[in-house]
Structure formats: C-alpha cells, structure tokens
C-alpha cells in the first residue's frame, strides 16, 4: 500500500538533541571532577601540599560548578518552553527520574558552590571586587567545623548526579537502547573517567605545580584502570542488549552497524575515547617514557570519547527504535 495517511515526520523527530548530550556530558564532568577532587583530597592532599594533587583538587572544585551551571543553562534552554521551567521547582514527582534529578541538582549545585568558595578562599579575598563574597565566606567559615560533613554531603550528591543521568535514560522502556540496567554504571564510570581527565588537564594547564615522573606514572596507571573498567562495561552493555532478543537485539545490531552513528561509536567512543588512550598508556608504561604530552593527549582523547558516548547513546537510542 503506498502511504496515504499523511506525514510520518513526527515519529522521526530527535526530541533530545545534541544539547541534551552535552548536558549529560557536563553533568558527568561536574560530578566526576568533584568526586575525583574529593577522593584526592581525602587520600593524598594531607601528605603532599603543593603538587599535582593540589592542582587536581583546585581544578575539580573549579570545573564542577562551572560545568554544572553551563549544563543547567543548556537543559533549560532546550525546553520547548524555557520560561516555564519554574514548574520543575514547584512540582515534584517522586516517580520521575527527571524530578529526582532536579532534586539532586538543587542539593548538589549550592554545595558545590560553597565548597568552591572554601577551597578558593584565599584567592577570593585577594580581589577587592569580590568583597561582597567575603562576609558570606566568613559565615561559611563559622561552619568550618562542619567542613568535613559538607564534603561527605557533596560526595553523596555528586554520586547521585553522576548516576541519575544514566537512570534518566534507562528508565524509559520505550527506548530499547537506553532501557538497560548497565547504562547508569557505564555513565557513572565514564563520568569519573572524564572527571580524572578534566582535572588533570585543567590542573596541568592552570595550576601547574611540581610534577614529577612518579605522579605522571601514577596518573597513567589511573587512566589505564578506568579504561579497563569502561571497555568491559560497554561490552556487557551491548551483550546484554543482544540477549534481550526480538527488537532489542535488532536495535543493538543496527546501532552498531548502520550509518554515521556506528562510525561515531567505533571510531569516536571506542577508537579515540578508549583505544587511543589505552595504546599511549601501554606504550608509555612499557618504554618508561613519562612525558606530560602523553597525559595531555590522553586526557583530551578521554574527554572527547566520553562526549561522543553521550552523543551516540542519545541519538542512536532515538533513531533505532525497533
């Protein structure tokens, strides 16, 4: 029957576009960078005062608020009716992952900002135009005894933000590619990976302090570990889909083999995001050549890979519906 029921364009609309992919990426970076910063602070910072570790903490506390604010801006701008976003704040649906996300973000964002102020306290007081913040900082400092508690809260909130983006997608059983329990873990893992990468990158570029062979080696090993976790996770994700049977497995096959998106996955996510860093890390560790350049390359490639993973999942999910 030749079609005569009218346009079917509405079924092919990409409702969540690149803006959402970038938002997921930014939210992941924010959560990842703060998680990494906190871990470093708790484990390392006590011992070495002025090192790459310190730079990574500073980087994390700077990246986290900037990226979450940028992400939130994108999120609201992407609404069909951005000016009505306030409904998100005055209504709460405990069944909706999006509603939960709003709750997490409402808790997370202020804590991140406070934490950032605390970390950059000495820098802020140097600038007179930032004086109005001074009294606020004073007040926060009066809570100083709770600083550790704030950090714990922040860690919890960051973990929530880092994983909710995965649940946001996986909660939708209408979209086979998203409806996988592995997806939130993949997203959280890659968020942490992007957190490490961005902290190293920003740390090296803006807060460059003493950096020695030992710390480079350590960072490379850290990279290796994350990649070695992510690769099998992605494998499990797709194997799970394949065994989903019926339209789910055909969707997974199509998503991995058809058109430009498959290219994004194989070349971007796997090639640039995982194999390229893996190769450089292994090469560097084998030949015992520890250069900053390697780390910068790795971090950039990892970030690009994580962004492309979000992009790929968002688009492939909506295009291949079975």
């Amino acid at each position: 029957m030749s079609p005569m029921w009218g346009s079917t364009a509405q079924y092919e609309v990409i409702h969540w576009s690149w803006a959402i992919a970038v938002y997921l990426f930014l939210a992941g970076i924010s959560a990842g960078s703060i998680i990494v910063a906190l871990l470093v602070k708790w484990n390392r910072h006590e011992r070495s005062n002025s090192s790459i570790w310190d730079a990574m903490i500073k980087s994390g506390t700077l990246v986290a608020p900037v990226s979450i604010l940028a992400g939130l801006f994108l999120l609201v701008a992407d609404l069909g009716r951005p000016l009505s976003f306030y409904w998100l704040l005055i209504r709460f649906n405990p069944l909706s992952v999006m509603s939960l996300g709003v709750l997490f973000l409402l808790i997370y964002t202020p804590i991140v900002l406070v934490f950032t102020l605390l970390v950059f306290e000495r820098t802020i007081v140097k600038y007179t135009w930032l004086l109005p913040l001074g009294s606020f900082i004073e007040w926060v400092k009066s809570l100083h005894s709770y600083a550790k508690t704030i950090e714990y809260f922040l860690m919890a909130a960051a973990l929530c933000v880092g994983s909710y983006t995965g649940f946001l997608l996986s909660a939708l059983y209408a979209i086979p590619l998203w409806n996988s329990p592995v997806l939130p873990i993949v997203f959280l893992t890659s968020s942490i990976s992007s957190g490490i990468a961005v902290n190293i990158l920003i740390g090296l570029v803006f807060f460059k302090s003493t950096i020695n062979t030992e710390s480079i080696k350590y960072l490379l090993v850290l990279d290796l570990r994350v990649i070695m976790t992510e690769l099998p996770l992605l494998g499990i994700f797709f194997v799970g889909l394949f065994y989903g049977g019926g339209e789910v497995s055909s969707v997974a096959k199509a998503a991995l083999s058809h058109g430009g998106l498959a290219l994004v996955f194989w070349l971007g996510v796997i090639g640039i995001g995982l194999l390229l860093p893996l190769a450089t890390v292994i090469l560097a560790l084998r030949s015992h050549v520890y250069r900053v350049r390697y780390i910068l390359t790795n971090a950039t490639a990892v970030l690009l890979g994580v962004l492309l993973l979000r992009y790929y999942i968002i688009y492939a999910g909506q295009i291949y519906l079975g």
């Binding site: 069909g80 409904w87 999006m98």
Partner: peptide, 25 residues
C-alpha cells in the same frame, strides 16, 4: 504546566505524543 521537556514523548512506547508546533506543548 507542560514545560515541553519531551521526556514523556520519549517514554511513550506507542509514539503517540508529539509537539504541537503552534503552541509548543
């Protein structure tokens, strides 16, 4: 009350929802 976040459109397994291009809801 619809902010047109499009989450429901994606959640519908029957692809029954769409955006009214005139009202943007």
């Amino acid at each position: 009350q619809c902010i047109t976040c499009k989450y429901c459109i994606l959640a519908c397994p029957y692809h029954a929802r769409f955006i009214n291009p005139l009202k943007n809801v």
